[in-house]
Structure formats: C-alpha cells, structure tokens
C-alpha cells in the first residue's frame, strides 16, 4: 500500500524528517507515536501533498505509484485520506454540500456517474447516525463554530463517506473527551477492513486502546527509532519518550 523509503523533508530550510522509512501493507493499522516536534505532523502533510514542504530525498510509493509526483487532489482521489489535526473552517460552504462535492469528485475520477441526491442523503444519514452526529451540524458551514469534538467527528464522517484505501489520522484524539473518543474510534473501526490501511498518529497510548494497531512505531527527531507491536505503546506509556528514544 504505502512504502516510504529514507524520506528527507525540510520546511523553510530546516530539516524535519531526516531519513524516515515506513512500510504499510494492505489491511494493516500502524500507529506512529512521538513527542512534539518529532516530525509526526510533517509526515502527514507531506504525504497529503501540502505546499511548502520540500522533499530533499527518498521516495514514497502509494499503491505502486510515485506519490510525490501527484497533486493534492490526485492523491486524495487515488485513495489517500488525511484526517486533520486542525480541520479548516470554511465559512459559506455547507458541510453536506462539501461532502457531496468531494464524493462526486472521486466518482468522476474513477469514471463513475455522479451520486444521486437521494442515495447520498441516505448514506449520509446512516453514517452520521453511526457517529452520533446531529443532522443540523451538516447544514452548518464547514467546521465553522464547531466544537473541537464536532470537528473531529466531522473528519471521521468524511473518512467513512469517502472510503479511502489509506487513512492517516493526525492526532485525531486531541481535544476529545472520553465519550467522543469512543464514538470516533468506533467510527474508525467500522471503516476498517482487509482492503484498507490506517496510519494513526498520536501522542498518547489512550487512543490505541480503542483503535488496536498491528504495529507501533516511535518517531524521534525525524526518524523512526523503534518499531514493534501493540506492547510497545504500553511500554512507552510507562517509560516516556525520552528513555525510549535513547534506547
């Protein structure tokens, strides 16, 4: 699915990722943990194709294509999804309209006909109920005046609607209370299947109680310093980043 090889990335001439490698196969869930400033969010932005991130070396293959060659929307339509840590507020654009536009963009990309309004509404109702999302929220402007929890739920709703092959969750747990965390995680778990993959970026082991990863990686100073299974996350919670990064 995703193969990152010795990736080096800088922003404003400051190197953030210093040779990061990571391989994610179909059906796998990987967790990426690390302290602030270790390069977690940079990785998610670079994979999604945000401007201003300078790739200085290495390669990223996504479904056997060179990911770094693609435009942002091309990557998305190829099945890459980023759930943002800070979802953008866009006044004047209704949430449900945005969702529909995004879904149709993907269908068009795959040469499928546009979704008819009824079908979309049915799907949206079902998915938003699963996430305990108030239908009124979908009528409001995209993320405008949403609470922190609502924004994250909305991201996960987009995830389940767009059904990506690889979803990157960038600190989706930040700003969530326990109930919201549970609902969001359930949403993610429902979207999981043997055909898609997840990269879960987080500070805390807490989220991983709900979304069980197959692999856990620790990132420090722009490199993956340790990889293991779920037990690594528990170990980390006990010992802290500093110790683990040294080891």
């Amino acid at each position: 699915m995703l193969n990152i090889n010795n990736l080096k990335v800088s922003i404003d001439e400051k190197e953030i990722l210093k040779g990061l490698s990571l391989k994610i196969n179909k059906g796998e869930v990987h967790a990426l943990m690390g302290p602030n400033g270790s390069g977690k969010s940079t990785l998610s932005y670079v994979l999604s194709g945000k401007e201003k991130y300078q790739v200085n070396g290495g390669s990223v293959d996504f479904k056997d294509n060179n990911l770094l060659d693609m435009d942002v929307d091309e990557r998305a339509n190829n099945g890459l999804f980023l759930a943002f840590q800070y979802p953008m507020e866009i006044p004047g654009v209704q949430t449900s309209f945005f969702l529909r536009t995004a879904m149709n963009a993907k269908r068009k990309f795959n040469n499928k006909p546009e979704l008819d309004a009824l079908e979309f509404a049915k799907e949206l109702k079902k998915k938003s109920q699963e996430l305990n999302i108030n239908p009124d929220m979908l009528k409001r402007d995209l993320n405008v005046n949403y609470s922190g929890g609502e924004k994250k739920k909305q991201e996960i709703l987009q995830l389940s609607m767009l059904d990506p092959d690889l979803a990157i969750l960038d600190e989706t747990d930040s700003g969530l209370d326990i109930d919201a965390l549970r609902i969001v995680s359930e949403g993610v778990n429902k979207a999981r299947n043997s055909e898609n993959s997840f990269l879960v970026i987080t500070h805390y082991q807490r989220l991983l109680n709900y979304i069980k990863p197959d692999f856990v990686h620790i990132i420090a100073d722009g490199r993956i310093v340790k990889s293991g299974d779920y037990s690594l996350a528990l170990e980390l919670e006990e010992q802290g980043y500093e110790k683990m990064a040294q080891a």
Binding site: G49, D71, A105, L162
Partner: peptide
C-alpha cells in the same frame, strides 16, 4: 489545500 486533500 483542504479541498484538494478531499479530492476536489
């Protein structure tokens, strides 16, 4: 960018 990241 946000739109692009959703394939639009």
């Amino acid at each position: 960018y946000y739109f692009n990241s959703r394939g639009i």
